[in-house]
């Protein structure tokens, strides 16, 4: 949404991220997607090379794209593919814990609002 606002006011934007469906749905002008776990959109921690290449590729996209474009980045996750299924997985083992976490989440949120922690 911020990219859309900036782009509408004469600032060219590019998103570098890992949440493909969320960014795609929002409708953004340029998106460099690194298909790795959420948390390190620019590349592996401590891989300055990957991080540099992601930023350079995103800038190249700004320079080259003439229409809304999604570019798939070259960063690969070398630690297996289990993360795809594991993230936010709901299993018999965690179902009850999730239900209780939801109750605590709502209680804590109300408490924060009562303390004046809101906008």
């Amino acid at each position: 949404m911020t990219a859309r606002e900036l782009e509408s006011h004469g600032i060219a934007t590019v998103i570098i991220g890992s949440g493909f469906d969320i960014v795609e749905k929002c409708g953004v002008p340029r998106y460099l997607h690194n298909d790795i776990p959420l948390g390190n959109p620019l590349g592996h921690p401590y891989s300055a090379t990957e991080q540099h290449e992601s930023v350079a590729s995103a800038l190249e996209l700004i320079e080259q794209a003439l229409v809304p474009t999604i570019r798939f980045g070259k960063v690969k996750w070398n630690e297996g593919e289990a993360w795809r299924a594991n993230y936010m997985a709901i299993t018999d083992a965690n179902r009850e814990a999730l239900r209780l976490a939801g109750i605590e989440n709502r209680r804590s949120r109300l408490e924060q609002i009562e303390k004046g922690e809101k906008r």
Binding site: A3, A12, I15, I62
Partner: peptide
Amino acid sequence: DIAILVPL
């Protein structure tokens, strides 16, 4: 001129 947006 250019903004790079990086959502975590």
